[in-house]
């Protein structure tokens, strides 16, 4: 089952964590817009209107304002958090895609927090449809956010599994050489050197990465599964930081917040009575309700497959892209992601 591991009183904290991480994400977007100069040529996959948007300051400022209002309304909670959350999601979606056009590549660290917000809102919408009270609504929101966050890792694992390139004898070795600081003499540097000199260690690490990522569905199996797999996913991020100097701070913060029973941990640290175990307000779904839920999910997937995206719009324009010189080769959209947050 996908029960909360946080006990009573844990979920408002999660909503705040989500709001704070969204704020960090918004700051990161603004930083990318105003501190990083755009590439000489815009990526071919980006539609002209996103590139045009990037050139104007006022739409970016207006979108940041809307995102801020949305995040504040989400943090405040109450029944209106659904509408504020949707506002934040839409504003962030336009901002992040415009930023991708600006910096010339997708910065995927922003997508993890977007996924968590998407899952949180799915939970709230589902709760509304079932007439749940505020407390039960936030339990469902928490479960939705955990599921979407887990799905981001499962997707990453699936991609690596399908391509298989990471399992090559020298892949991890090359990645470490490519990303690790050349003059690192610390203990981590010595371990990285060990990976470079013994490629079989790299193969083992690559295998463990794929097992941890592809097995992320275990995160949804219950409190123990969430704690164990959450710890493994956090370890994966720590390993990525140590070996490749790449850190997904926002995703790691969400994992730390979502994976452990913090209300109980704090009660133990402060020597207060442990909060009561969450009451069993997790009613079963009838076959009809389950079919309806699956149907809505399938509809959303179908919509995602046919709806225009920046890539499909960019491709449609590619006969005569107004913002890319004809001689410019297409940008590799699968480039490795940015490092620090």
């Amino acid at each position: 089952m996908s029960a909360s591991v946080h006990g009573d009183g844990g979920r408002p904290g999660l909503r705040w964590v989500l709001a704070i991480v969204l704020l960090i994400s918004l700051y990161g977007v603004v930083e990318n817009f105003f501190l990083i100069p755009p590439p000489e040529d815009s990526p071919a996959w980006s539609p002209a209107w996103l590139v045009t948007l990037d050139g104007l300051v006022w739409p970016i400022v207006a979108l940041c304002g809307l995102a801020l209002v949305g995040i504040a309304g989400l943090a405040r909670g109450k029944r209106t958090q659904l509408w504020f959350g949707l506002l934040a999601l839409v504003a962030m979606a336009v901002l992040v895609e415009a930023m991708a056009a600006h910096v010339g590549e997708h910065r995927r660290r922003f997508y993890s927090v977007g996924a968590a917000l998407f899952g949180w809102l799915c939970g709230l919408i589902f709760a509304r449809s079932r007439g749940a009270n505020d407390d039960r609504s936030e339990r469902l929101a928490e479960a939705g956010a955990a599921a979407a966050l887990a799905a981001t890792y499962a997707n990453a694992g699936l991609q690596k599994l399908m391509a298989g390139g990471l399992f090559d004898d020298h892949s991890f070795q090359i990645y470490v050489l490519h990303h690790h600081h050349i003059d690192d003499t610390s203990i981590i540097g010595r371990i990285a050197q060990l990976v470079v000199t013994h490629p079989q260690i790299g193969v083992g690490l690559a295998l463990s990465v794929v097992v941890i990522q592809a097995g992320a569905w275990i995160y949804l199996t219950g409190p123990r599964g969430r704690m164990i797999w959450g710890t493994l996913l956090i370890s994966f991020h720590v390993g990525t930081l140590a070996f490749l100097h790449i850190m997904y701070v926002m995703a790691t913060v969400l994992l730390v917040a979502w994976s452990y029973p913090w209300a109980r941990v704090f009660a133990r640290v402060l020597r207060r009575p442990a909060p009561p175990v969450s009451v069993a307000d997790d009613p079963p779904l009838s076959a009809r309700e389950l079919a309806m839920l699956a149907g809505v999910g399938a509809l959303l997937v179908a919509l995602a497959w046919i709806a225009p995206t920046p890539h499909s719009l960019g491709s449609a324009e590619s006969n005569e892209p107004p913002h890319v010189p004809a001689s410019t080769p297409p940008t590799n959209t699968d480039s490795s992601d940015g490092g620090g947050e």
Binding site: S4, L140, A148, L220, L300, W305, T309
Partner: peptide, 25 residues
């Protein structure tokens, strides 16, 4: 249970939609 049902659908839905769009926030 409703939380597990929701979690399975959101997990599958996110994965399926992501494969469809590749990269769209």
């Amino acid at each position: 249970r409703e939380r597990l049902g929701l979690a399975i659908v959101v997990f599958t839905c996110y994965s399926g939609a992501a494969i469809g769009v590749t990269n769209a926030y």
